[in-house]
Amino acid sequence: MPHPNRDSRNAAWQAAHQWRARAANTQPTGLFGALKLMLVWLAFGALMIVGVVFGLIFLLVGWAMMPFMRHKMKKRMEQMRADRAQDIGGNVHEHASPAKGEHVTLEGSFEVKNER
């Protein structure tokens, strides 16, 4: 066990003793203290219930909005695919001819035939 004189000089030990003394002095005594403690617990419980109810409401609203958001995202993806397909499959004559030394890449599936 630590030496009592050495512990009494430790600042953290003194702070712990002071905290313990204050906690012992502030414990509810009598009817007023018990009533105050009961009101604090009721307020805490009410806030917890309100928080849970708000959480459930936001959860249900989020779940209710999911089909609408899915439809919106699906439409956006279809539009992006259509724009991309138009860029890839556009008319070759619309594009400017490449400058000297540049290569033109055509996308698609090609087959090389053997020459006879």
Rank of each mutant, 00 (worst) to 15 (best):
W13P: 01
M77W: 06
W41H: 07
L39H: 05
E102I: 03
L35A: 13
A12Q: 15
A46Y: 07
E94T: 05
G55W: 01
H17N: 14
L39C: 04
I49P: 01
F44L: 10
I49F: 08
F58Y: 10
D87L: 13
E115D: 02
L39T: 06
V50H: 05
P28D: 13
A24C: 06
A15L: 15
K74E: 04
A96L: 05
M80C: 08
P98T: 05
R70N: 15
M65N: 13
F58W: 11
H95P: 00
G55H: 03
K100V: 03
F54L: 14
V92Q: 10
L106D: 00
V92T: 08
R20T: 12
M69V: 10
E111A: 03
A12H: 14
L31D: 13
M65D: 13
W41D: 07
L39F: 07
A12W: 14
G45N: 06
R70A: 14
K74C: 00
K75T: 10
H17Y: 14
F54T: 07
A82K: 07
H17V: 15
V50R: 04
F54Q: 09
F44I: 09
R70G: 08
E107N: 02
H93N: 07
A34T: 10
A85Q: 13
R116F: 01
R76V: 08
M38F: 05
A64D: 07
W13L: 09
Q18T: 11
G89N: 14
V53A: 12
T26I: 11
A11T: 11
V53E: 05
E102K: 03
Q27V: 11
R70W: 07
D83Q: 14
W63N: 15
N114P: 02
I88N: 03
G62D: 09
K74G: 01
R81S: 12
G62V: 05
G45W: 00
